[in-house]
């Protein structure tokens, strides 16, 4: 493994700051997008499941006739 060649590559021949800045920020932004998308999906799902459970519990507790009375 030629360390010199590796260092040459890693520093991008003096342009290292720019190249790695560009790639680094791109990586961060794209990861953020993906993570945000997935987190939004899973928290939405949890929220909907919770809603569903609440509704199920509600309709189990309240007898049918009283529910009808409430709706009018």
């Amino acid at each position: 493994m030629d360390v010199d060649a590796f260092i040459q590559w890693a520093t991008m021949g003096q342009h290292g700051f720019y190249v790695w800045l560009a790639y680094g920020v791109s990586l961060v932004v794209l990861l953020l997008v993906i993570v945000q998308t997935r987190m939004e999906a899973s928290s939405l799902r949890k929220e909907l499941e919770l809603e569903m459970q609440l509704k199920a519990r509600e309709s189990a507790l309240v007898p049918a006739t009283a529910r009808e009375g409430q709706q009018s």
Binding site: W9, G13, Q14, V19, A22, Y23, L30
Partner: peptide, 29 residues
Amino acid sequence: LLLTGTFWGLVYAPADYQQGESFRIIYVH
């Protein structure tokens, strides 16, 4: 695809004659 392209562009692609290594930014820009 993005991992392949990025790795290829950063490591294997040749540097530009005029711009040098900064040319590699083209692969994300």
